[in-house]
Amino acid sequence: MKTHSTTFFVNNKEYTLDIPVHRTLLQVLRDDLSMTDVKYGCGAGECGACTVLVDGDRPILSCLTLAVLMNGRKITTVAGLEKEGELHPVQEAFVEEGAIQCGYCTPGMVLKSVSILEKNPSPTEKDIRRGLEGNICRCTGYEKIVKAVQRASIALAASSPVKQKEGGKV
């Protein structure tokens, strides 16, 4: 079996592994590194549950990504979002708005939301819906997820240092 020595970061921790070339990033994260916060939903890129971020803000489907392609990359999973014990504002908004039911799509949904807000801090409702289209949730009917992303957008703007300098107004 052909393997590649691959070095990458997951949640700021460096890993160097000999990875069989056919192995997906999802398999390596879940099965080899026991990072079960990354979820398997379909294995075919049809549900978004396995979403992780690459190099900060680029969402990818880890079930469709060969792990060896991650050489030199920085991967963020949902477990890597909290800082100093504090939830990320997107995570906080998901809890506050009740945007979580079974919670199985939540890691992917949260990460995708983070990436949307990184690129566009004040998305319209349409932007949010378009951005999250590839992430399926069977439980919530999506309304509360949209509200959570809107709430996080406001919270992030309020806490942004630039805005604070301008008097804290959003």
Binding site: D37, L87, G103
Partner: peptide, 11 residues
């Protein structure tokens, strides 16, 4: 808030 959602949102 639903208590278990703190665990869920962190995976």
């Amino acid at each position: 808030p639903v208590k278990e959602n703190f665990d869920k949102v962190q995976g």
